[in-house]
Design a protein around this nucleic acid. Structure first.
Length: 834
RNA sequence: GCCCGGGUGGCGGAAUGGCAUACGCGGGGGACUUAAAAUCCCUUGCCCGAAUAGGGCGUGUGGGUUCGACUCCCACCCCGGGCACCA
């Protein structure tokens, strides 16, 4: 009998899978399709068990679905552009391509070592021209449709990265890669994608994802889009002769009679004009300049003191004609709404604090619908709930909801303003002053201006040899042979755009490319995409809840408008798995707590690593790495191998038929017990895979089955080889998605010449899972006082009679009055006594 | 502050409103062995008790609903995560 040798077994089966192309999947309309996908990895060079958990979950699902008869596409590729490669290249004076390709080779090696069931024919790398060419192609389509545009704008600038960051890449006012470095504001010409045009569509799409996506991801996206309905109102600046007006956005027009001032953002464009000529303007200008300088640190953001200055002018409240002082305030954001607010201290907490500091009045104009009315003395903080309007002219007495409606339409009718919806979502700034990315395919011609690179000239190749310094301007600007170009319109001299694209473009559509990875005429064939899409199961970390997933949804909508796809959402189901931690913190290079995937595979075998990551915690929860836990899983696999090996010889040639009820009648007690346990396990494991997605309990159940088999040894006695073999096969098939190499080996040991690729998930047979006797509990006043072994299906009356006949129960209830008898068939009897 | 998760043995974790702690780890005891490792068997929530007799207490805290609550409802505490001057 041979020992379980994971290294040998794993190498053997990986080789065979490769030779057979076991995981190759192509369009096949005779079978239902299944698209299983894990998020595109960044080839940082190291693969630790955190990555492996992601792939293991995806692989288990992919393998399970194959056994269920699905045509499963399960691809992998590399998110190969981006800053780390460029930085590493600078550090090691090499080329980003060399660095990244070495990393890809290393990571691919480990992925293969783990035997994930990828269709390697579909592998892509986003830094290859055949891939990024289509980034450029999409960009040009967006340019044609006005979805890509150029704008001089204040951008988020990370001084460490020396590049622009998208709003989504700013975390707490700091760079997402340099969490300690505050983002600076800088004005440059940038390319933007008009994602805001899809704000409503993306918001509405969220509703269709409910159920398939984790609720918290949907909440995060909803918040990120940040739609709010309100009104834009015009506050005319006094004296009216000047003709200036300040637009203000508010969601609470019902509180307008309580406005005591108008506050502008320090960057407000009207300020220069307004301040000109007022008394003390020099001091005011200096103060505004100071307020504008605020670069808020993360910690200060929410708590920073509200500061401002009165600029010496007044504006007219459009509703009651009141003259309101105009202020500048540091808490008013130019980027949101109109860059100006009406200050209603009694009904907005920020305004309340501002009013406190500068002794502005706080007129109360909304009272709670019930309870004590508010008075200026009892108002300790702003009352921000809806209520009933008071002191609001003709609107007094209205509820906030109807007041908002009425006042908005009145304002519109009188030309004072209009209903407006604003979004927190901003257009996506995609220009990066970096080398290692997709060149933006446009030319600048002195004569023709901006000229798109014609499709037939794509791809605009990144120059191969490039000295990257990481300093200053876009590195491409220093490559004259790249910059120098010929205008596509007039054939005169032109200059190439030297910025590259944000790498989130790469990952916004890669999963379409997987379906048709070598297409040289189009990003993909729409007919092929129609077969495979949407993605049935996407698996990745929660850290991509907003950026990647929102951009991907945006791209999908654009593609739909381009007529390339006919679905609106690319991902039907999303799963966000928990992190792998060691010592309570996520595994990372910087924390130095990495458990390398390859070392793991060398020591225990990858099946053990897979099994442990599935067993140690439910997949959505964080998982604490435990060396002893690994040992346990390794022991289990060895035990299963021993168990099967002990009997394989005599079982090899045995034919397995599914015993029907007739067979069961003549079955021995041991056979019944084995079949019962096996089918009970099958029922629950199938449920775990189909519905619950709790693989930890699946593993536990299979362990119980193995325990039962061991308990029933010697299996040569009182059990027919056919039954033993059937149970072994059930166990093997259930193990197959989780420990695929061992499962293949066991399958072969049991006499199957064809591998598991041609096997199918076993059919659950209810009659085999049925218990002959079940234990019911007898309770007195809810406390267990006895137990009964009964045949299942006993009627409530019969069950009660048996319980009452129980000697101990009779004794305990002898001098008691039985007030109530609760009988749950096949479960329990509860006697309420007094 | 707001919005999500979560709180169960020594540990990771199980439990369609029906025997709380499955499975694994760790611990204790034993078999095999010259010995150890490996393997196999038994045992293992806490307290009272000689007991493998029986009883009591136990799922963050306090209430509630129920014959019966880890599970449902209300309030609170703690931990983790997300959002946070969004007008």
């Amino acid at each position: 009998m041979t020992e379980y040798d994971p290294q040998a077994i794993e190498a053997k089966w990986q080789k065979r899978w490769d030779e057979q192309g076991a995981f190759h999947a192509d369009v096949d309309r005779s079978r239902p399709k299944y698209y299983a996908l894990e998020m595109l990895p960044y080839p940082s060079g190291t693969l630790h068990m955190g990555h492996m958990r992601n792939y293991t979950i995806g692989d288990a699902v992919a393998r399970y679905k194959r056994l269920r008869g699905f045509n499963v596409i399960h691809p992998i590729g590399w998110d190969a552009f981006g800053l780390p490669a460029e930085n590493a290249a600078i550090q090691h004076s090499t080329h980003p391509r060399e660095w990244i390709n070495a990393n890809i080779a290393a990571m691919k090696h480990v992925c293969r070592r783990f035997g994930f069931s990828y269709d390697w024919r579909r592998e892509i790398s986003t830094c290859e021209p055949e891939y990024y060419r289509w980034n450029q192609w999409f960009f040009l389509r967006m340019l044609e449709r006005g979805l890509a545009y150029r704008k001089r704008s204040r951008v988020n600038w990370c001084p460490k990265c020396a590049t622009v960051l998208a709003n989504e890449q700013v975390v707490n006012g700091c760079c997402w890669r340099h969490e300690e470095t505050p983002v600076e504001a800088k004005e440059i010409e940038q390319w933007f994608l008009r994602i805001t045009q899809y704000a409503d569509a993306l918001l509405e799409g969220i509703e269709t994802l409910a159920g398939g996506w984790p609720e918290r991801v949907l909440v995060m996206q909803r918040n990120w889009i940040g739609k709010s309905r309100g009104a834009k109102l015009r506050f005319v600046v006094a004296p009216q002769a000047k003709g200036e007006a300040i637009d203000v956005f508010t969601t609470r027009i019902d509180t307008i009679y309580g406005a005591s001032s108008v506050i502008l953002a320090p960057e407000h464009p009207l300020l220069a004009k307004l301040v000109a000529g007022v008394k003390g303007q020099a001091g005011i200008k200096a103060e505004i300049a100071r307020l504008r300088q605020r670069i808020l640190r993360p910690a200060e953001l929410g708590t920073a003191e509200k500061e401002g200055i009165f600029i010496g002018r007044f504006a007219v409240n459009p509703f009651n004609g009141a003259s309101l002082p105009i202020w500048v305030g540091n808490f008013v954001l130019m980027e949101y709404g109109a860059g100006a607010v009406m200050c209603v201290p009694a009904h907005d907490q920020r305004d309340f604090e501002f009013a406190d500091k500068y002794q502005l009045s706080k007129p109360i104009v909304v009272q709670p619908a019930a309870g004590k009315p508010l008075t200026p003395t009892t108002l300790g903080q702003a009352y921000t709930d809806y209520g009933v309007l008071v002191d609001s002219g003709p609107y007094s007495g209205l509820a906030s909801e109807s007041a908002i409606e009425r006042m908005t339409s009145d304002a519109q009718a009188k030309g004072l303003g209009e209903a407006q919806t604003t979004y927190r979502l901003k257009d996506w700034g995609i220009s990066r002053q970096r080398y290692w990315g997709t060149p933006i395919p446009v030319l600048y011609c002195d004569k023709c201006g901006l000229v798109p690179v014609p499709d037939e000239q794509l791809p605009v190749l990144l120059p191969q040899s490039m000295s990257v310094s990481g300093k200053g301007q876009s590195p491409l600007a220093n490559a004259p042979e790249f910059v120098r170009a010929t205008c596509a319109k007039c054939a005169g001299p032109a200059r190439r755009e030297t910025d590259t694209m944000d790498t989130f473009i790469d990952s916004s559509w890669y999963f379409y490319r997987y379906t048709d990875p070598r297409n040289s005429r189009a990003p993909f064939d729409p007919a092929i995409v129609r077969y495979w899409f949407p993605i049935d199961q996407y698996i990745g970390g929660i850290e991509h809840a907003i950026l990647h997933l929102l951009y991907s949804r945006f791209f999908c909508r654009v593609m739909k408008d381009l007529g390339l796809v006919d679905h609106s959402e690319p991902v039907a189901r999303l799963f966000t798995q928990g992190m792998v931690q060691k010592g309570g913190v996520a595994m990372s290079k910087s924390k130095g707590n990495i458990v390398g995937a390859e070392e793991m595979a060398k020591q225990y075998g990858c099946d053990t690593g897979r099994l442990y990551t599935l067993f140690a915690a439910p997949p959505e929860k964080d998982l604490e790495w435990s060396e002893q836990g690994i040992e346990g899983c390794s022991r289990f696999l060895h035990r299963v191998h021993r168990l099967v090996a002990r009997h394989a010889e005599r079982l090899r040639g045995v034919a397995v038929g599914n015993p029907g009820p007739a067979d069961l009648a003549s079955a021995t007690a041991k056979e019944k017990a084995l079949l019962r346990k096996a089918h009970q396990t099958l029922r629950r494991v199938t449920h775990d895979f189909d519905v619950r997605w709790h693989f930890n309990t699946s593993v536990a159940l299979i362990m119980e089955l193995a325990n039962e088999l061991q308990k029933q040894e010697p299996l040569e006695q009182e059990a027919s080889p056919a039954v033993v073999k059937e149970v072994f096969e059930l166990m093997t098939l259930m193990l197959a998605p989780m420990a695929p190499h061992l499962a293949e080996e066991l399958w072969e040991m049991l006499g199957h010449a064809e591998g598991l690729s041609s096997a199918t998930w076993p059919a659950f047979q209810a009659h085999l899972a049925e218990e002959e006797q079940i234990e019911v509990v007898i309770q007195i006043n809810g406390r267990v006082r006895g137990k009964l072994l009964i045949e299942p299906g006993l009627s409530a009356d019969q069950l009660l009679a048996r319980a009452l006949a129980d000697a101990r129960i009779a004794q305990l209830t002898a001098n008691q009055r039985v007030l109530k008898k609760v009988v749950v068939p096949d479960k329990l009897v509860n006697l309420v006594v007094a």
